[in-house]
Each structure stands twice: as structure tokens, then as C-alpha cells.
């Protein structure tokens, strides 16, 4: 090391692959390494960089998915709300109808016969009550036990409208008193429920001047003439026995329901223009 060297030769030695004698000495220097703390920091930063590089893709995917889900959810909610409103409207309408309907006045003969048969058939309670009230007429218990055979089960109780004691349209119940006074007679209206909706000013105003018959068949303008149209429509659908109809008109007149009798008579004349009218009704015939 103490000998004089040619600088150019020394440089060539340095640039050789083994870097000359200085290279050997340099390789024996302490080979410092970065502390593990630095390794963790650098690798952690690199990993975070990769994650942050991936995250935007995931976020874009999430944004798309979230938007689609939001749209579907909003559409579902809107549809549900719409359905609910429709159901509510229908419920309001039906409740109004249910509150304002009154029993129809069936006048056709088969209907009367059927109803009378229903009313005449005693229920289980009504059968038991007279027996308890008149024990003297009953046979003794042993005799009854011997003669009594197992009875068939009592028939199911008839439906409310069929058990109606009176077919009068002014029949009042707790739920139907509101419309009772407004209902016009509807001869022969025997819809599914056998009841007829009447004209009610308040209900008519709520429903844009139109009301529906309780039997659900027609809708008529809610004017005093509405029932007439409804009656006319129903009368055309349910052919009536002319004589029964005339009898019903006479009964209406006798009950003092003069206007209804006139309207029925007018409809009757439309439907049966050549039918002879009784003397009682001729004075009503316009």
C-alpha cells in the first residue's frame, strides 16, 4: 500500500469486477443493515399503498351496488306506499258503504218464502227456551229419555241479513242508522249481500257526488235522483214480478213513502208500459 501507483492503472483496477485491493478492504467494512423498525415501516407503507390502490375499485363497485340497491329499495317503498294508499282508499270506500248500507227490501216471492222459512226455523236457543218455559207439557224425564233419539245437529245460524226481522229499508241497526233515513226503496235488489246502499248526502259529497249500491253492482250520481237511476239499473238487472212490484208500490204508498212509491211506479211504467195499474196507483201515475 505504500508503493506509488499509477492513478490511471489504479482507476482501472477500481473499475474491474473485483474493484482491486480497495474493493477487498471495502468488503470487510462493517456491513450495516437497516434496523427491523425500518423494515416494518417500509413494508407497511408499501402494503398500505397497495390496499389504497385496490380500495377505489372496491369503492366504485360499492357505489354502483349501493346505487342499484337504493333504487330498488326506493321503488319497492314507493310501490308499497301506493298499494297501501289504494288499500286505504278501498277500505274507506267499503267502510263508508258498510256504514251506510241498509238491508234491501226483497219482494220477490221466492225470496220471501226463503226468508220466512229461515225465520220460521227456530234456533237452538229458541228451541230450548220454550221447552224450559213449559215443563208441564213435557213428558216425564224417563219417558223422554226412552223416546228421545239423538237429534241431528241444529242447522247453522242464518246470516245476519237473512235473519233480518223486517225487510224494510228503514231497518236500523247500530251500524247502519246513519244511512237508514236516506235509503230509498230498492225493490228486488238482491245482491251478493242482499243489502242496498242508500243515498247519503255526506257520503256523496265525499265521493265526488257518486255513491255505490251496497250490492256492489252499480254506481250512481249522488243526487236525489240517484236512487232512481240505481233502482232503474237494478230493476233492469233483476226482473221483477209485475204484480209483486205493484204490491210493493202500494205498500210504500200505504206506509206514507209517497215519493218512493212514485219513483217505483215511474220505473214500473217504463219497464211495463202496457201493464194495468190498480186504481190505488193510477192516481200516482204521472
Amino acid at each position: 500500500m505504500s508503493t506509488r501507483r499509477d492513478p490511471e492503472q489504479d482507476l482501472q483496477q477500481l473499475l474491474n469486477a473485483d474493484r482491486g485491493d480497495l474493493g477487498h478492504i471495502y468488503d470487510k467494512l462493517a456491513r450495516a443493515e437497516p434496523p427491523p423498525r425500518l423494515d416494518r415501516i417500509v413494508l407497511g407503507e408499501a402494503a398500505r399503498a397497495i390496499r389504497s390502490q385496490r380500495q377505489p375499485r372496491a369503492q366504485r363497485w360499492l357505489v354502483g351496488f349501493g346505487s342499484a340497491a337504493g333504487i330498488v329499495l326506493a321503488a319497492g317503498i314507493a310501490w308499497q306506499v301506493g298499494q297501501q294508499m289504494q288499500r286505504q282508499d278501498a277500505a274507506d270506500t267499503s267502510s263508508d258503504s258498510a256504514r251506510s248500507v241498509i238491508p234491501v227490501q226483497p219482494i220477490s216471492a221466492p225470496a220471501d218464502v226463503e226468508r220466512e222459512a229461515v225465520y220460521a226455523q227456530p234456533s237452538a236457543e229458541s228451541v230450548a227456551a220454550p221447552q224450559a218455559a213449559a215443563p208441564a207439557k213435557q213428558e216425564s224425564a224417563p219417558m223422554r229419555a226412552r223416546q228421545e233419539k239423538p237429534r241431528p245437529a241444529p242447522p247453522p245460524a242464518p246470516r245476519l241479513q237473512h235473519r233480518h226481522p223486517s225487510p224494510c229499508p228503514n231497518w236500523q241497526s247500530r251500524r247502519r242508522t246513519r244511512a237508514a233515513g236516506c235509503c230509498r226503496t230498492l225493490p228486488g235488489c238482491r245482491g251478493k249481500r242482499g243489502i242496498c246502499g242508500g243515498w247519503h248526502p255526506a257520503r256523496a259529497s265525499r265521493h265526488g257526488g257518486r255513491v255505490s249500491c251496497g250490492c256492489g253492482k252499480k254506481s250512481a250520481p249522488a243526487l236525489p235522483g240517484a236512487c232512481t237511476q240505481r233502482i232503474h239499473a237494478l230493476a233492469s238487472e233483476y226482473p221483477l214480478d209485475p204484480e209483486a212490484w205493484l204490491g210493493e208500490i202500494i205498500r210504500l204508498e200505504e206506509q206514507g213513502r209517497h215519493q218512493e212509491a212514485i219513483e217505483n211506479l215511474r220505473l214500473f211504467r217504463r219497464k211495463y208500459p202496457d201493464h194495468d195499474l190498480p186504481d190505488v196507483l193510477r192516481k200516482l201515475d204521472p
Partner: peptide, 26 residues
């Protein structure tokens, strides 16, 4: 490869160059 998301490639690079870089800096 690391730019494409391969973390193992970066670890390989780091192990290979960490010592020489550190000594150069030191």
C-alpha cells in the same frame, strides 16, 4: 409486479436492495 398489486414482489425487491441502499446512505 408490485405496481400491479403484488406485495410479494415488493418484499423480494426490498430484501435484495435494502442492505446496499442503507450502507450507501449511511
Amino acid at each position: 409486479a408490485y405496481a400491479g398489486g403484488d406485495m410479494i414482489a415488493f418484499e423480494t425487491l426490498y430484501r435484495r436492495h435494502r442492505g446496499t441502499l442503507y450502507r450507501f446512505l449511511l
